[in-house]
């Protein structure tokens, strides 16, 4: 619910490259962190969590491509390091379905991976503060806060990109007659993306999603903690 669904070729090249560099460093660090762990147990868990995220993304909750992510579930179960690897795999596979641009897989992974990263630590914090009996509240709250933070990162990325369609897209030079119409609209819109309008649209659309994802995360974690408590252990970090 916090995917960076910006089309290929609209974000500036430096930002796309920065996304890839950042995610390469994070993945390298994650792989280094788990180098002593046996792959026999990690790989099936990565596979099933990644597959579950993909399957959940195929079930639209509201018919406007609205779906759950389960990134915080991934963070809680896999731990932040492995969750980043899992989310990278998910983003790579769904990009092949055209779900998110292939060139922005790096940035997508940074945004969604942040949900898993923050979600894991908030879950641990809430469990320590509220107590182990409050697993539902801890996971639900962790999910909502993580989603709010990752959405802020998403808006931040768009803001940092300073997307100026006149420069990025170059319509002015190619179609002078169309560009002439630009002069009739308010100046702040001509400068590029209207960050206020973008943030407003995103926040309205995603706000409902945070609550829904928080509730679903809470029930999923509650169920898993009852049936397979060994899958939710602090030492997974």
């Amino acid at each position: 619910m916090s995917h960076l669904h910006i089309p290929d070729g609209v974000l500036p090249g430096w930002l796309v490259m920065a996304g890839w560099i950042v995610i390469a460093l994070i993945l390298a660090f994650s792989i280094y962190r788990i180098k002593n762990t046996k792959l026999n147990r990690k790989i099936p868990l990565i596979g099933i969590i990644s597959a579950l995220m993909i399957v959940c993304m195929t079930i639209p909750i509201i018919p406007i491509a609205y779906h759950i992510n389960l990134s915080v579930v991934a963070g809680i179960i896999l731990g932040p390091a492995v969750a980043f690897i899992s989310i990278f795999i998910v983003d790579l596979i769904i990009a092949m379905f055209g779900h998110g641009g292939i060139t922005v897989v790096g940035l997508n992974t940074v945004v969604i991976g942040t949900e898993a990263f923050i979600g894991f630590y908030l879950f641990q914090l809430f469990m320590a503060l509220i107590g182990r009996d409050s697993i539902m509240w801890s996971s639900g709250l962790a999910a909502v806060i993580s989603l709010i933070l990752s959405t802020s990162i998403l808006i931040g990325v768009v803001y940092v990109s300073q997307i100026n369609p006149e420069i990025v897209i170059g319509i002015e030079e190619e179609h002078p007659t169309e560009a002439a119409n630009v002069g009739n609209v308010p100046n702040e819109l001509v400068k590029g993306i209207n960050i206020k309008s973008f943030a407003k649209t995103i926040l309205i659309l995603l706000g409902i999603g945070w609550i829904l994802e928080g509730i679903i995360t809470a029930f999923v974690i509650k169920y898993v903690s009852r049936v397979r408590p060994d899958l939710i252990l602090p030492e997974r970090a």
């Binding site: 669904h5 910006i6 089309p7 997307i163 309008s197 973008f198």
Partner: peptide, 19 residues
Amino acid sequence: YPAIFALIFALASWNGSWL
């Protein structure tokens, strides 16, 4: 599938140019 998200992006950067 990505059309709806591209639409949000297009609306957010709308300056009166359909192109």
